[in-house]
Simulated scan of single mutants.
Amino acid sequence: MTPPDYDSLLDDEVSAYIARSATYFPPGAVSLSIEEQRAVYDRMCAAFHAGRPEGVVVRDLVYGGVSCRLYEMATASEVTVVYYHGGGFVVGGLESHDDVCAEICARTGLRVVSVDYALAPEHPFPACYNDALAAYTGVREAFAGPILLMGDSAGGNLASGITHEVRPDGRVIGQVLIYPELGADRHKGSFVEHAHAPELTAADVVAYRVLRFGVADPPAGDTRYFPLQDKDLSGLPPTVVLTVECDPLASNGPAYRDAVRAAGGQAEWINGKGLVHGCLRARHCSARAGAFFDEIVGAVDALGHRRWPY
């Protein structure tokens, strides 16, 4: 297989974003100590933080025993978006995705709750999942309306896993998953084609899996680890999966979409051309990343207001 020509696939703005990102979070950062990884990741996220839009009221609260951050507009929303941040289950937290959650709240008018789940390796799987579920349960008890689950990368995995778990209660009206890790075959597709992609390599993915669970191969048949291991995907709410072209995780999009559709559900896959993993941070410095974020906001707005425009 001929390696992708990233000089051709990526435009100048995305390339500039990658170069700037590398000054904070260098390639191969997964080989650093856990403390160093978190420090460089936090510095990178702080450098790209775009501020919160006016009118968003923010409070740090606890739901289900888990630290969370609540974002609301002056007019109360019936719908609550529960957001699980990315970071390989190892880095990230309430600060890393603060401006992303604030912008989603401002642009959709929906209440957003960001979840600060436990991180590996100090808290190995299933600690992250248990916190994600506990936070969902706390939000469910605190607010009476419908719930939309979403997340990026590792957080997309958690959002989907919780959606599978709680579907019988009918409170979740949709899920929006951003370049998620869902368990697609790592021996073919994007995992092979984009094994050496900028920002996230296949080796990085495996390294994060080892940190999360202790071994590279996931537990067999455990939907909490990989939602695509679920033998029954029926009854899931409307689903939008958004991936990016230059990413070993891209094949999770069509794999999950097809599995949900095969089980009788509504699912759409959107793939951002010429973009890289983590490009949420590039939304204000790249037209392509900005358009990708528009797609994300559009999906949240549509599902949060019970529309299916796809």
Score class of each variant (00 low, 15 high):
A263E: 01
R171E: 01
D152R: 04
V206W: 14
E165A: 10
G264E: 12
P237K: 15
G278R: 09
V79A: 03
V100W: 07
G87T: 05
I173E: 01
L303I: 09
R307G: 00
L133R: 09
N252G: 02
V57Q: 15
G87C: 10
L303E: 00
R111D: 01
A197V: 13
L119R: 09
E165P: 01
E245G: 03
S15F: 08
Y63Q: 11
G304I: 04
D7W: 13
T239K: 06
A197Q: 13
A118G: 05
R224C: 06
Y310R: 06
L148T: 01
D99G: 09
A262Q: 04
S67N: 13
L242R: 10
V297G: 03
L119T: 01
A203G: 13
N157P: 01
G92H: 05
L211C: 10
G253A: 09
G235Y: 12
L110W: 04
T201V: 12
S190Y: 04
P238M: 11
V176Q: 02
E199Q: 12
A154W: 04
L280M: 10
E245Q: 12
V192F: 06
D230S: 15
G290R: 11
L211F: 09
L177N: 00
D230N: 15
R212V: 09
E199T: 11
L242P: 03
R261V: 13
V115I: 06
L177S: 00
L200A: 07
A142Y: 02
I270Q: 12
I18M: 13
P4T: 06
P121H: 13
G290M: 06
T108S: 03
E295D: 06
Y208H: 07
T239C: 10
A16W: 12
Y129K: 07
